[in-house]
Protein backbone atom coordinates (compact mmCIF):
# COMPACT_ATOMS: atom_id res chain seq x y z
CA UNK A 1 0.00 0.00 0.00
CA UNK A 2 2.56 2.53 -1.18
CA UNK A 3 1.68 4.96 -3.98
CA UNK A 4 3.11 4.53 -7.45
CA UNK A 5 5.70 7.18 -8.35
CA UNK A 6 4.36 10.68 -8.95
CA UNK A 7 5.74 14.16 -9.25
CA UNK A 8 4.85 16.69 -6.60
CA UNK A 9 4.37 20.40 -6.98
CA UNK A 10 3.53 22.87 -4.25
CA UNK A 11 2.92 26.13 -6.09
CA UNK A 12 2.92 29.40 -4.17
CA UNK A 13 0.15 31.01 -6.19
CA UNK A 14 -3.01 30.06 -7.99
CA UNK A 15 -1.50 31.12 -11.29
CA UNK A 16 1.47 28.88 -10.72
CA UNK A 17 -0.85 26.01 -9.80
CA UNK A 18 -2.78 26.45 -13.03
CA UNK A 19 0.48 26.60 -14.98
CA UNK A 20 1.57 23.27 -13.52
CA UNK A 21 -1.82 21.72 -14.22
CA UNK A 22 -1.75 23.00 -17.78
CA UNK A 23 1.75 21.65 -18.30
CA UNK A 24 1.05 18.25 -16.78
CA UNK A 25 -2.22 17.57 -18.56
CA UNK A 26 -4.80 15.05 -17.49
CA UNK A 27 -2.40 13.06 -15.34
CA UNK A 28 -2.25 15.82 -12.74
CA UNK A 29 -4.43 15.83 -9.66
CA UNK A 30 -5.09 18.62 -7.17
CA UNK A 31 -4.34 17.88 -3.51
CA UNK A 32 -5.97 19.82 -0.67
CA UNK A 33 -6.81 17.81 2.47
CA UNK A 34 -6.01 14.45 0.91
CA UNK A 35 -8.47 12.46 2.99
CA UNK A 36 -9.88 10.66 -0.03
CA UNK A 37 -7.05 11.03 -2.50
CA UNK A 38 -4.17 9.71 -0.41
CA UNK A 39 -5.84 6.36 0.40
CA UNK A 40 -6.63 5.95 -3.30
CA UNK A 41 -2.96 6.56 -4.09
CA UNK A 42 -1.78 4.16 -1.40
CA UNK A 43 -4.01 1.39 -2.72
CA UNK A 44 -2.81 2.22 -6.23
CA UNK A 45 -6.41 2.73 -7.29
CA UNK A 46 -5.28 6.13 -8.58
CA UNK A 47 -1.87 6.86 -10.06
CA UNK A 48 -1.64 10.52 -11.07
CA UNK A 49 1.57 11.63 -12.71
CA UNK A 50 1.66 14.80 -10.61
CA UNK A 51 0.10 16.01 -7.40
CA UNK A 52 -0.46 19.76 -7.29
CA UNK A 53 -0.64 20.65 -3.62
CA UNK A 54 -2.75 23.77 -3.01
CA UNK A 55 -1.79 24.19 0.60
CA UNK A 56 0.74 26.97 -0.03
CA UNK A 57 -1.60 28.92 -2.33
CA UNK A 58 -2.70 32.11 -0.53
CA UNK A 59 -6.27 33.33 -0.39
CA UNK A 60 -8.05 29.99 -0.40
CA UNK A 61 -8.57 29.55 3.31
CA UNK A 62 -11.41 31.97 4.04
CA UNK A 63 -15.03 31.45 5.03
CA UNK A 64 -16.93 34.54 3.83
CA UNK A 65 -20.39 34.98 5.28
CA UNK A 66 -22.81 37.55 3.87
CA UNK A 67 -26.55 37.88 3.88
CA UNK A 68 -26.59 36.06 0.55
CA UNK A 69 -24.81 32.97 1.74
CA UNK A 70 -21.56 31.35 2.72
CA UNK A 71 -18.52 31.15 0.47
CA UNK A 72 -16.03 28.49 1.53
CA UNK A 73 -12.46 28.61 0.22
CA UNK A 74 -10.72 25.56 -1.15
CA UNK A 75 -8.43 25.14 1.87
CA UNK A 76 -11.09 25.53 4.58
CA UNK A 77 -11.14 22.40 6.71
CA UNK A 78 -14.41 20.76 7.71
CA UNK A 79 -13.67 21.48 11.36
CA UNK A 80 -13.30 25.18 10.70
CA UNK A 81 -16.62 25.38 8.88
CA UNK A 82 -18.27 23.33 11.60
CA UNK A 83 -17.08 25.79 14.20
CA UNK A 84 -18.02 28.99 12.31
CA UNK A 85 -21.01 30.57 14.10
CA UNK A 86 -21.82 33.09 11.35
CA UNK A 87 -21.95 30.38 8.71
CA UNK A 88 -24.17 28.31 10.96
CA UNK A 89 -26.61 31.19 11.31
CA UNK A 90 -26.84 32.04 7.62
CA UNK A 91 -27.05 28.44 6.41
CA UNK A 92 -27.64 25.98 9.29
CA UNK A 93 -27.29 22.95 7.00
CA UNK A 94 -23.54 23.52 6.80
CA UNK A 95 -22.84 22.76 10.44
CA UNK A 96 -25.57 20.14 10.65
CA UNK A 97 -24.12 18.17 7.75
CA UNK A 98 -20.46 18.76 8.58
CA UNK A 99 -21.01 17.20 11.99
CA UNK A 100 -21.68 13.93 10.16
CA UNK A 101 -18.45 14.09 8.13
CA UNK A 102 -16.30 11.21 9.36
CA UNK A 103 -14.35 11.78 12.60
CA UNK A 104 -12.57 14.77 14.13
CA UNK A 105 -9.14 13.76 12.82
CA UNK A 106 -10.50 13.66 9.29
CA UNK A 107 -12.47 16.88 9.75
CA UNK A 108 -9.31 18.61 10.92
CA UNK A 109 -7.53 17.80 7.70
CA UNK A 110 -10.16 17.25 5.03
CA UNK A 111 -11.61 20.23 3.17
CA UNK A 112 -15.21 21.00 2.37
CA UNK A 113 -14.42 22.02 -1.20
CA UNK A 114 -12.23 18.94 -1.63
CA UNK A 115 -15.21 16.78 -0.67
CA UNK A 116 -17.31 18.51 -3.29
CA UNK A 117 -14.65 18.24 -5.99
CA UNK A 118 -14.28 14.54 -5.12
CA UNK A 119 -18.01 14.23 -5.95
CA UNK A 120 -18.74 11.21 -3.82
CA UNK A 121 -22.52 10.73 -3.84
CA UNK A 122 -22.19 9.44 -0.26
CA UNK A 123 -20.57 12.69 0.85
CA UNK A 124 -22.45 15.12 3.04
CA UNK A 125 -21.22 18.33 1.46
CA UNK A 126 -22.13 17.34 -2.09
CA UNK A 127 -25.70 16.87 -0.88
CA UNK A 128 -25.72 20.20 0.93
CA UNK A 129 -24.40 22.03 -2.13
CA UNK A 130 -27.22 20.50 -4.14
CA UNK A 131 -29.93 21.08 -1.57
CA UNK A 132 -29.03 24.74 -1.09
CA UNK A 133 -28.79 25.29 -4.82
CA UNK A 134 -25.11 26.10 -4.50
CA UNK A 135 -22.31 26.48 -6.97
CA UNK A 136 -18.56 26.40 -7.19
CA UNK A 137 -16.06 28.87 -8.61
CA UNK A 138 -13.58 27.32 -10.97
CA UNK A 139 -10.35 29.04 -11.91
CA UNK A 140 -8.71 28.22 -15.21
CA UNK A 141 -5.94 29.96 -17.16
CA UNK A 142 -8.75 31.66 -19.10
CA UNK A 143 -10.32 33.14 -15.98
CA UNK A 144 -12.97 32.29 -13.42
CA UNK A 145 -16.39 30.81 -13.93
CA UNK A 146 -19.27 29.72 -11.76
CA UNK A 147 -20.67 26.23 -12.14
CA UNK A 148 -24.00 25.33 -10.59
CA UNK A 149 -24.28 22.03 -8.76
CA UNK A 150 -26.39 20.36 -11.43
CA UNK A 151 -23.71 21.00 -14.04
CA UNK A 152 -20.92 20.14 -11.65
CA UNK A 153 -21.86 16.59 -10.65
CA UNK A 154 -21.60 14.27 -13.63
CA UNK A 155 -21.34 10.83 -12.03
CA UNK A 156 -19.90 9.02 -9.05
CA UNK A 157 -16.50 10.57 -8.28
CA UNK A 158 -16.80 12.58 -11.48
CA UNK A 159 -17.34 16.31 -12.08
CA UNK A 160 -17.42 18.48 -15.14
CA UNK A 161 -14.18 20.15 -14.03
CA UNK A 162 -11.28 18.91 -16.14
CA UNK A 163 -7.82 19.89 -17.21
CA UNK A 164 -6.10 23.00 -15.95
CA UNK A 165 -8.76 24.00 -13.45
CA UNK A 166 -8.98 24.47 -9.70
CA UNK A 167 -12.20 24.67 -7.71
CA UNK A 168 -11.31 27.69 -5.60
CA UNK A 169 -14.47 27.98 -3.56
CA UNK A 170 -17.99 26.72 -3.04
CA UNK A 171 -20.94 28.99 -2.45
CA UNK A 172 -23.90 27.93 -0.34
CA UNK A 173 -26.88 30.32 -0.61
CA UNK A 174 -28.45 31.53 2.62
CA UNK A 175 -31.46 29.81 4.09
CA UNK A 176 -34.62 31.56 2.87
CA UNK A 177 -36.91 33.29 5.34
CA UNK A 178 -39.54 31.23 7.22
CA UNK A 179 -37.48 28.11 6.60
CA UNK A 180 -36.16 25.29 8.69
CA UNK A 181 -33.65 22.55 7.97
CA UNK A 182 -32.67 19.13 9.17
CA UNK A 183 -29.95 16.68 8.29
CA UNK A 184 -30.16 13.02 9.32
CA UNK A 185 -28.23 9.88 8.50
CA UNK A 186 -28.22 6.19 9.15
CA UNK A 187 -24.69 4.80 9.09
CA UNK A 188 -23.36 1.42 10.14
CA UNK A 189 -20.83 2.94 12.51
CA UNK A 190 -20.69 6.49 13.79
CA UNK A 191 -18.66 8.50 11.31
CA UNK A 192 -19.00 6.06 8.41
CA UNK A 193 -20.35 7.09 5.05
CA UNK A 194 -24.12 7.05 5.37
CA UNK A 195 -26.04 3.97 4.32
CA UNK A 196 -28.61 6.64 3.59
CA UNK A 197 -28.82 10.28 4.54
CA UNK A 198 -31.28 13.08 4.01
CA UNK A 199 -31.06 16.84 4.21
CA UNK A 200 -34.25 18.85 3.97
CA UNK A 201 -35.43 22.43 3.74
CA UNK A 202 -39.02 23.31 4.61
CA UNK A 203 -40.25 26.81 3.82
CA UNK A 204 -43.55 28.13 5.15
CA UNK A 205 -45.68 30.94 3.83
CA UNK A 206 -46.64 33.98 5.85
CA UNK A 207 -49.58 32.07 7.35
CA UNK A 208 -47.40 29.21 8.57
CA UNK A 209 -48.56 26.83 5.86
CA UNK A 210 -46.16 24.67 3.94
CA UNK A 211 -44.93 26.48 0.86
CA UNK A 212 -42.03 24.38 -0.41
CA UNK A 213 -40.37 21.16 0.67
CA UNK A 214 -37.09 20.00 -0.78
CA UNK A 215 -34.93 17.06 0.16
CA UNK A 216 -31.52 15.85 -0.88
CA UNK A 217 -30.26 12.31 -0.35
CA UNK A 218 -26.91 10.68 0.20
CA UNK A 219 -25.92 7.25 -1.05
CA UNK A 220 -29.04 6.69 -3.11
CA UNK A 221 -27.82 7.51 -6.60
CA UNK A 222 -24.75 8.18 -8.72
CA UNK A 223 -24.90 11.93 -8.06
CA UNK A 224 -26.50 14.06 -5.34
CA UNK A 225 -30.26 14.22 -5.85
CA UNK A 226 -32.67 16.94 -4.85
CA UNK A 227 -36.35 16.16 -4.91
CA UNK A 228 -39.24 18.54 -4.54
CA UNK A 229 -41.77 17.01 -2.16
CA UNK A 230 -44.01 20.03 -1.93
CA UNK A 231 -47.01 18.52 -3.68
CA UNK A 232 -47.55 15.99 -0.91
CA UNK A 233 -48.00 18.62 1.80
CA UNK A 234 -48.52 21.93 0.05
CA UNK A 235 -50.64 24.37 2.03
CA UNK A 236 -50.83 22.17 5.10
CA UNK A 237 -50.16 23.61 8.57
CA UNK A 238 -46.55 23.02 9.60
CA UNK A 239 -47.51 21.39 12.87
CA UNK A 240 -49.88 18.84 11.36
CA UNK A 241 -48.70 18.31 7.80
CA UNK A 242 -48.80 14.79 6.46
CA UNK A 243 -45.09 14.18 6.45
CA UNK A 244 -45.67 10.49 5.88
CA UNK A 245 -47.21 11.36 2.54
CA UNK A 246 -44.11 13.34 1.66
CA UNK A 247 -41.99 10.36 2.70
CA UNK A 248 -44.05 8.07 0.50
CA UNK A 249 -43.55 10.45 -2.39
CA UNK A 250 -39.81 10.49 -1.77
CA UNK A 251 -39.68 6.70 -1.88
CA UNK A 252 -41.16 6.78 -5.37
CA UNK A 253 -38.65 9.34 -6.58
CA UNK A 254 -35.42 7.56 -5.67
CA UNK A 255 -33.82 4.60 -7.36
CA UNK A 256 -31.06 3.41 -5.04
CA UNK A 257 -28.63 0.55 -5.60
CA UNK A 258 -27.72 -2.16 -3.14
CA UNK A 259 -24.21 -2.78 -1.86
CA UNK A 260 -22.42 -4.61 0.93
CA UNK A 261 -24.08 -2.59 3.64
CA UNK A 262 -27.64 -2.13 2.44
CA UNK A 263 -30.03 -3.58 -0.09
CA UNK A 264 -31.75 -1.24 -2.51
CA UNK A 265 -35.03 -1.92 -0.73
CA UNK A 266 -33.53 -1.06 2.62
CA UNK A 267 -32.21 2.21 1.25
CA UNK A 268 -35.64 3.01 -0.12
CA UNK A 269 -37.12 2.25 3.29
CA UNK A 270 -34.64 4.62 4.90
CA UNK A 271 -35.37 7.37 2.39
CA UNK A 272 -38.93 7.37 3.65
CA UNK A 273 -38.11 7.11 7.34
CA UNK A 274 -35.43 9.78 7.24
CA UNK A 275 -37.57 12.07 5.10
CA UNK A 276 -40.46 11.93 7.50
CA UNK A 277 -38.28 12.51 10.55
CA UNK A 278 -36.29 15.30 8.95
CA UNK A 279 -39.32 17.12 7.61
CA UNK A 280 -41.08 17.13 10.96
CA UNK A 281 -38.00 18.54 12.60
CA UNK A 282 -37.36 21.12 9.89
CA UNK A 283 -40.97 22.27 9.85
CA UNK A 284 -40.94 22.75 13.62
CA UNK A 285 -37.83 24.87 13.21
CA UNK A 286 -39.39 26.88 10.39
CA UNK A 287 -42.45 27.57 12.51
CA UNK A 288 -40.47 28.57 15.58
Amino acid sequence: MKPAPFRYADPGSLGEALDVLAAEGDGAKVLAGGQSLIPLLSMRLAAPTTLVDLNRVPGLDAVEVTGDGVRVGALVRHAELLGNPAARTVQPLLARATAYVAHPAIRNRGTTVGSIAHADPSGEMTAVLALTGGSVTVATPAGRSTIGWRELFVGPLETSVHGAAVVVDAFFPALPARSGTAFVEVSRRRGDYAVCGAGVVVTLDADGLVETVRAAYLSVGPVPEVHDLTEAVSGQPAASADWAAAADLARTLVDPDGDLHASADYRRLLVGVLTERALASAAAEAAA
Binding site: V186, R188, V195, H261, A262, S263, D265, Y266, L269
Partner: peptide
Protein backbone atom coordinates in the same frame (compact mmCIF):
# COMPACT_ATOMS: atom_id res chain seq x y z
CA UNK B 1 -27.01 -9.59 11.45
CA UNK B 2 -27.13 -6.04 10.10
CA UNK B 3 -30.09 -3.66 9.92
CA UNK B 4 -30.63 -4.40 6.23
CA UNK B 5 -30.69 -8.13 6.97
CA UNK B 6 -33.02 -7.67 9.93
CA UNK B 7 -35.33 -5.71 7.64
CA UNK B 8 -35.32 -8.69 5.28
Amino acid sequence: ISPTELYD
